[in-house]
Simulated assay, not measured.
Amino acid sequence: MSRRVIVTGGASGIGARIAERFAELGDKVAICDANPDAVAAFAKSHPTISAEIANVAQADAMDVFLSAIEEEWGGVDVVFANAGTGGPAARIEDISPDDWRDCLAVNLDGAFLTCRWAARVMRAQGSGLIVLTSSTSGQWGHPHRSPYATAKWGILGLMKTLAMELGPAGVRVNAICPGAVEGERMERMLANQSRASGRDPDTIRAAYAEGTSLRTWVTADDIADAGIWLASPGASKVTGQALTIDGHTETNSA
């Protein structure tokens, strides 16, 4: 039976791969993203997936996007609250209040707005799965990335609480905590972190891999695999869990 799947931040990176993989399984998929160019490119290459422009940090924009989905589909089975931003890379004394708030707004407020809607819809239908994207930075902390780490820790608190609130209604809530994921976003982050720390980007890149037991980065497909498993019957009793996909971080030496 075809599932109804929503992915926020779905026009590129992890979100795009999650959307693609569920669509390949025959599921009905809708994504939103704040980047108009990315949405246009995604829509052109994925004609069977609904793609809309919406900034997850803006309540009005999310209301429009999610209300349209609810009206068309009548409900939803799987929601990935995936949208996020890396935020500034700097020592905390060099981070402006506006940059701090912007990072938390996209990562944490965006998750709240998405989950707020999903909770209402799923509670009413008595079933559903919410998956939030956190990070190993939300488990270890991350020097020069305090707004990002703070938001990702907050996402785990939100996930744990919603699992408790929604479990009696038959709704599961989990989080995926990716490590260093190959792709354009991490390349931008490496450049920002290099400027903040004065270290060479290649040195930082190597440190991420060396800080894991498997000595590796992970891919968007690795994260999508975890999402597909969480949505499968094999994970029907899994809720309130932070599933870390990172090659096992031994130390956050990056």
Results as ranks from 00 to 15, higher is better:
100 W>C: 06
162 L>V: 14
208 Y>W: 01
127 S>N: 07
179 G>R: 06
139 Q>G: 03
186 M>Y: 03
234 G>R: 14
46 H>M: 07
190 L>N: 00
112 F>Q: 12
231 A>Y: 11
152 K>M: 09
186 M>N: 09
56 V>R: 13
230 L>Q: 10
158 L>I: 14
126 G>V: 11
114 T>A: 10
218 V>L: 10
102 D>C: 04
96 S>T: 12
245 I>D: 03
250 E>N: 08
17 R>E: 09
51 A>P: 15
114 T>D: 12
8 T>P: 15
86 G>E: 04
76 V>D: 01
22 F>N: 10
77 D>V: 08
193 Q>K: 05
74 G>H: 09
25 L>D: 05
124 A>M: 08
138 G>Q: 00
230 L>S: 09
102 D>M: 03
87 G>D: 08
144 H>R: 00
168 P>F: 11
222 D>W: 13
64 V>K: 15
57 A>P: 15
143 P>V: 00
81 A>K: 13
168 P>S: 08
242 A>I: 11
13 G>W: 08
145 R>T: 00
224 A>Q: 07
241 Q>A: 13
36 P>C: 05
36 P>K: 03
188 R>D: 01
118 A>L: 12
151 A>R: 01
207 A>S: 08
172 R>Y: 10
47 P>A: 05
24 E>S: 09
177 C>T: 13
103 C>N: 10
196 A>K: 01
152 K>Q: 02
92 I>T: 04
55 N>I: 11
215 R>F: 10
47 P>Y: 08
200 D>L: 03
179 G>C: 06
196 A>V: 00
245 I>Q: 07
239 T>M: 11
240 G>D: 03
184 E>T: 13
40 A>R: 14
175 A>T: 09
187 E>T: 03
240 G>L: 09
164 M>R: 11
147 P>G: 06
146 S>F: 01
112 F>Y: 15
29 V>H: 08
94 D>E: 12
160 K>F: 08
105 A>W: 04
152 K>G: 05
145 R>N: 00
87 G>I: 02
67 S>Y: 09
182 E>F: 02
174 N>V: 11
96 S>L: 06
183 G>T: 08
128 G>Q: 07
214 L>M: 04
40 A>G: 10
178 P>F: 01
238 V>T: 06
156 L>D: 03
137 S>M: 02
57 A>C: 12
141 G>Q: 01
169 A>V: 08
47 P>L: 07
13 G>H: 10
128 G>F: 10
65 F>G: 14
78 V>H: 07
111 A>H: 04
174 N>P: 14
144 H>C: 04
110 G>Q: 06
9 G>E: 03
72 E>S: 13
247 G>S: 05
146 S>E: 00
249 T>V: 15
10 G>Y: 05
122 M>V: 06
36 P>T: 12
18 I>G: 14
143 P>E: 00
